[in-house]
Amino acid sequence: MVESLLDFLHIIFGQIDTTHYLVLSTIVFSIGVVGVLTRRNVIIILMSIELMLNSVNLNLVAFSDRLQDLSGQVFAVFVITVAAAEAAVGLGIVISLFRNKETVNVDQIDLMKG
């Protein structure tokens, strides 16, 4: 029992592995999922999406480090590009929504709800 606990601690605090980064990115991604699914404010939902995209970047860079291959980092740069485009368009939609509906709460935006 004690030995397995020591083993566990050694794995956790021994050397930083790719798995550490993967678990961290999983946790951050899940926090982003919670944000997207539970919040009412559109802007905070967009920020949670940014969080999720960033956690995927962490995965890409961690694997780039492990495989000693730069493609992962190049793809991380592309993901950042797409995130920037997504943020610009998303915020444009938020502005035009606010102009028409005077609200940024998702449960009051039900124009297409039949």
Partner: peptide
């Protein structure tokens, strides 16, 4: 600050994260 389905959402996200980890 949370919408109506937040309980379901938290449960689903927990399941997802446990599964991924």
């Amino acid at each position: 600050r949370a919408n109506r389905q937040w309980k379901t959402a938290v449960v689903l996200a927990t399941v997802l994260s446990v599964e991924l980890i």
